[in-house]
Amino acid sequence: MEEFFNKIKESFQDATLEFETINIKVDSAEWIEVHKKLRDELNLKFFSWLSAIDWDNEVSVGEAPKESVSPSFEIITCLSDLANTNLVTVSTSISKSEPNIKSLIEVYDGANWHEREAYEMFGINFENHPNLEKLYLPDGYEGNPMLKSFELISREVKPWPGEVDVEGMPEESESGESADG
């Protein structure tokens, strides 16, 4: 893992290795070139997945981020190498008001369905995609479910009844082995 990380750092200065995952942050204008370079020179031919994160300060589900962030979409792809199983994630940021990015379909064939899913869940527009249409949701569904501003109606109507922690955690006994509680 270390030597592969050093090799990546030669080409991309912005690479970080945290929690055993290498992450390369790039600009959205270089999206296609970076992927071509990773596929051809570093032999990362296995396209694992593509997805997005919605960074926002006002959330209607879950908890808001602890430090305030500037609202944006972060698009992440994950590539790997079958012979040595090296793994790399590539991320970029695009703005929320104009979510456009080039499609990766000319570099990897497998990006087809992943990009359709990101379009449907977040509303991100992928240029040059052959058929950008809905994958999961029924026809006539309005809204993009994964946005932080999309509410879960059932939770608004009736809060979850099980807010109480019913079972205690196991405690240490005298011999130091964990017993059940």
Binding site: Y136, L137, P138, P145, F150, L152, I153, S154, R155, W160
Partner: peptide, 9 residues
């Protein structure tokens, strides 16, 4: 999945 957006209750 009682609180999901696409499941019939």
């Amino acid at each position: 999945y009682w609180d999901s957006y696409s499941v019939t209750k």
